[in-house]
Amino acid sequence: MVNTPPLSRETLFTILDAVKDPEVPVISIVELGIVRDARATDGGVTITITPTYSGCPAMHTIAQDIRAALAVYGVDEVRIETVHAPAWTTDWIGPEAREKLRAFGIAPPGPVDHEGGLVALTRRRQAVSCPYCGSPRTELKSEFGSTACKAIHVCLACRQPFDEFKPL
């Protein structure tokens, strides 16, 4: 085994930024806020991740992709830890990544506009703008879409159905 200095946190994040979300391949797991920490540990690295949705089937693929990405840099001892607190929120997705989502045809998530806890049943979500034509005249078709993180809308201006990355 070649004795190389341990990879810095910054380098590890740069490597992991190349790992895209398997279901939304335009943004990385770092941009999504899935990677909470990365550090060199005895003989390898420890990556701390947090699940987006509890039942997201992509989490297994993401763990495999993390190992594969690090293996390219000769890091074979990868420990992946899962944390649940603080709970993942779409508020962690930065402006640049939101723009990438929009360009991909997915309306980015609006801000999570409540403090958590219980929300009134009658509460309505903010209107979502069409990622294709920009019109705010859109209609929610279903709050459950092609993946756990998306809702289905239709644009009343350009008639295009589209996904929204729903606020969580």
Partner: peptide
């Protein structure tokens, strides 16, 4: 989620967000 068992409270806080969508549905 507001209780004194940290690990269970974390799972509760996370599940609560998902269940909010479930209940609305």
């Amino acid at each position: 989620a507001k209780g004194g068992h940290a690990k269970l409270a974390a799972l509760a806080a996370k599940s609560l967000k998902e269940d909010t969508y479930h209940l609305r549905h």
